[in-house]
Amino acid sequence: MTYWQKKSSGKKTPPVWAVGLCLGLLFLGLGIYEGDLTAIYKKAVMICLECIGIG
């Protein structure tokens, strides 16, 4: 498709990265609603014994 065809087609599809970004924000919103971020926090503020090779 030439530049002029693109210019005149008038159709604007969102770039894929923008769709992915919106999905990411949607998932984050759902995660906050479901309490996932609290679960992340609870795990992250305790020393992870498995991570350091003890648990």
Partner: peptide
């Protein structure tokens, strides 16, 4: 987690950073 569910929070971060 014992009750398997979709980990939306983490997926959100991965999609966010991955897409950018």
């Amino acid at each position: 987690e014992q009750n398997l569910k979709v980990p939306f929070g983490v997926l959100g971060f991965l999609f966010f950073f991955g897409s950018l």
